[in-house]
Each structure stands twice: as structure tokens, then as C-alpha cells.
Design a protein around this nucleic acid. Structure first.
Lengths: 223, 223
DNA sequence: TGTATAACGGAGCGGTATGCTCCGCAAGCG
DNA sequence: CGCTTGCGGAGCATACCGCTCCGTTATACA
């Protein structure tokens, strides 16, 4: 050892690579679903496979980290939403934010990775926030009365993936990516407006159970 | 030859199998995306791989057939929508129908199969119908004025996939499938309501170009 | 400038999954 | 009972996958 004051020689590069990896993982996962390969992720990040495995012991660990980060974003958006003075703006901003940072990209890996305690805790917290946002909007009378928090969760997941955008990104059509982002923003705005209390016709069917949303994350360990 | 009056012995079974195959292909494709394997499709249809390859010479041919059928459904829904006396009901019914028969499942194979002439023609016809539906709704003043036909196409594609439903189906959780179908119907209703002219706030950004929607279907043949 | 060292990229290994062919078998018809 | 038609799935060549290992490269410090 040369002493504790020594700093890692290429630490800055390492951090840049880590960010690139997480970003690439999200994109490839969005485009390829559960079959996304580590090779594709590393290539997209412009990084060697070795670098990926130095930071994450397995593919699963990478995905777990990704899920945790995604939940962090959700929680942050939820807190910002509750901070907003207007109940409608708070909820709408939350849904829009979640949809736009690609919350739904993780859908395909549901059930393929083990849910860590960290993830579990963050899910709890984000559920809390979402319930609060929905309740506040209901009390203010700005949210369609028959919409539940589960509906909102599902809507976020549905909007949080853009097949068009994902595909263009992975195929390298950078010229169209901006247009796709813009297009998605419009769809989100349309769907969010559909949540407003203005609509008199009740929603079809009955309110969905939370089980729908949670059970897909149980990891099957049986053969 | 024993004469032209002879009928194929097991023709009924063959037809049933064909329907099962197409249905299974849609489901597996929806769940697994572009990586969907013929083995998985045959297994889900409860049919041997041999039977699949007797009817379709290649995997690509099966997918092309599927795409053509999907376009048929779109066209039929479009015609029904135009037949409806009320412009709003016509458009809303069209969007709902397209979303619910899983139009979006084909998204992942865009660009991985060659577009046949048959498909091309049907795309043309369905574009025509959609444009007419949107125009009629605009003239009647029931559709948000800044919504274009491309927006509607993209919305249909976005709604026409239900990650939750797809996953539950393929994982055999038949007990939850009905609930998921119901939940999706609610989301579709919400999003469709967002298209109404009632909304005063303009949509963000600018109208999306049709290229966004079409270019992903070009098949790359380069190495 | 030289040296130690943390971080790098990617060839390659064993194992798995995939598209498709081929063939022995069963079911309906006369 | 024999003929035809469709059936299922073992098996083949190949592509891909997760992961390890190691020679190379870039930087902080003397």
C-alpha cells in the first residue's frame, strides 16, 4: 500500500461509465424486453462487458439497481406532486413525470428478478405518495370520481413505454428520436386530460384490484 | 388419385389449429416481443411445430399473415366507425376496438419482417379510413382541434398493448386475466375521453409527422 | 518523467435456445 | 381394411447468452 491518500487513477471515467451503463440498460430493456442481453447493454453504453461485470456481479443485480433508481424517481416525482399547491397540477405533474422517465420500461422484467428489500421499501413509499395524491385530487373534486390509485398506476405503466421511441433509439435513428419524444408528450397530455372530473360518463367495469399490479413481480423459483 | 369428390380427412382439425396458431402467435408476440420463438407459439397453441411449418413456410410468413389479419380488423373497425351516425361515437368506437384487439402487439416486429404488397395496400386503406374518421370528428367539433390522425394512430398503438395482461396470460395466471382485461378497458376509456374537444389547454409541442409511424417498418437488409 | 495500480475492453468458454427438417404415427374417409 | 392427409416432436446446425480471464491503457503521485 502506498497510503490512504492515494486516489483511484481512472475514477472519473468509471463514474461516467456507470451512468452510461444504467442509461443504456434502460433503453435496451425498453426495446428488447426481458431478453435484453448484457452484450447489447454494454455495446450501447460504449463500454466493455468487463466493465459492466466489475460494477454489477450479475445481470440481475444490474436490473435490481435499475429498478431501485426508477422507484427513486417515482418517489421524487410524488413528493414534488404533493408539494404543488394545486391538487390537479400535482397529480397531473406526477403522472406526466413518471410516464416520461420511462417508468414502464421495467414492466418486462417483472417476475424475472428477485425483489430486494430495498425495492420493497421503496414500492411501499411510492404507493403511499400515490394514494395521497389521488385522495387529495378526489377531495378537491378535480379527479374523475371513479378513478382509483390502481387505475393511475396502470395508466403510468401503460404510458411509460413508447414502442416507437424505444425502437427508433435502438436502431440508431437519432434524427427521429426528438420527434418521437414530442409525440409521446402529446399522448401523455391527452391521457392525463382524460383523468379530469369533467367527464360524466362512468368508466366501464369495476375498479381493478391492486393484486393485478403487484403479483407480476413475484419471482417464480419453481421448475 | 381417387377422384375429385374426396375430402381431406382431418380438415376440421387443421382449421381449428390454424386459428389457435394465429391466436397464440399474437399472445406470445405481445408478451415476448420480437424474440418470440416458434416453439413457444406452437406450444401455446397446443400444436406441434410440424403443423406450424406445414401452414407457414417460415416464421416471417406467419408474422406477415398476422399483420395482414390485424390490418383487416382495423379496416373493419374503421368502416363500422364511419357507419356510425354520430361522429364522436364513430371515432371513439374505432379507437377502442383497435386498442382492444391488440393492435399494438405487432409493434415489436416492425422492421424485422418484410412488408408485403398485401400489407402495404391494407395500410393504405386503413389510413384512408382513419383520416376520414378524424376529419369528420373535427368538422363536427367534437375532437380536440389540435389532434391529428397521426396522434390517433400513435395513441392506438400505445393503448393496444397491455404489458400486465400479456404477462399474466403467458404466465398462465388465468385467474387474473379477466381483471386485467377490465382494467385495460378503463384505461382506454380514460385516454379516449382525453381526445374530446372539451379540453381547452392545447397539446404540447407540434403535430407529429407520419414518418414517425411508417419508417419503423422499413426492413434493414444491410449487415 | 517513471512507476504503481485501478480500471479498461473484449476474446472465448460452456451451455442454452432457435429456426427448421424429417419421419414415424394416427385419424378420418370410402 | 387400405389410402390419404395431417399430426407431433426428436434432432440438427447454428446463433446467442451470461460470465470469466487476462493483456492493455490511462492516470495520480513521487
Amino acid at each position: 500500500m502506498t497510503g490512504p491518500t492515494r486516489r483511484a487513477p481512472r475514477q472519473a471515467e468509471a463514474e461516467r461509465n456507470d451512468r452510461a451503463l444504467l442509461r443504456a440498460a434502460r433503453e435496451v430493456l425498453a426495446a428488447d424486453g426481458a431478453h435484453a442481453s448484457v452484450a447489447a447493454i454494454a455495446a450501447r453504453a460504449g463500454v466493455g462487458i468487463g466493465s459492466l461485470y466489475r460494477r454489477y456481479r450479475t445481470k440481475e443485480e444490474l436490473f435490481q439497481r435499475l429498478a431501485a433508481l426508477s422507484l427513486d424517481s417515482t418517489i421524487e416525482a410524488g413528493e414534488r406532486g404533493l408539494d404543488a399547491p394545486d391538487p390537479w397540477e400535482g397529480l397531473a405533474g406526477f403522472v406526466t413525470a413518471c410516464a416520461e422517465f420511462g417508468q414502464g420500461s421495467l414492466g418486462p422484467i417483472a417476475g424475472t428478478i428477485e425483489v430486494t428489500e430495498e425495492m420493497q421499501a421503496k414500492v411501499g413509499r411510492s404507493d403511499e405518495l400515490m394514494t395521497a395524491l389521488v385522495a387529495r385530487a378526489h377531495e378537491a373534486g378535480v379527479l374523475r370520481p371513479d378513478v382509483t390509485a390502481v387505475d393511475v398506476s396502470l395508466l403510468i405503466e401503460q404510458l411509460g413505454r413508447s414502442p416507437v421511441l424505444d425502437q427508433l433509439r435502438v436502431r440508431g435513428r437519432d434524427d427521429l428520436v426528438e420527434a418521437a419524444v414530442n409525440a409521446r408528450a402529446r399522448l401523455v397530455a391527452i391521457a392525463v386530460d382524460g383523468l379530469r372530473a369533467t367527464h360524466t360518463r362512468p368508466l366501464p367495469g369495476h375498479a381493478p384490484t391492486p393484486r393485478l399490479f403487484t403479483e407480476r413481480w413475484v419471482h417464480d423459483t419453481d421448475g
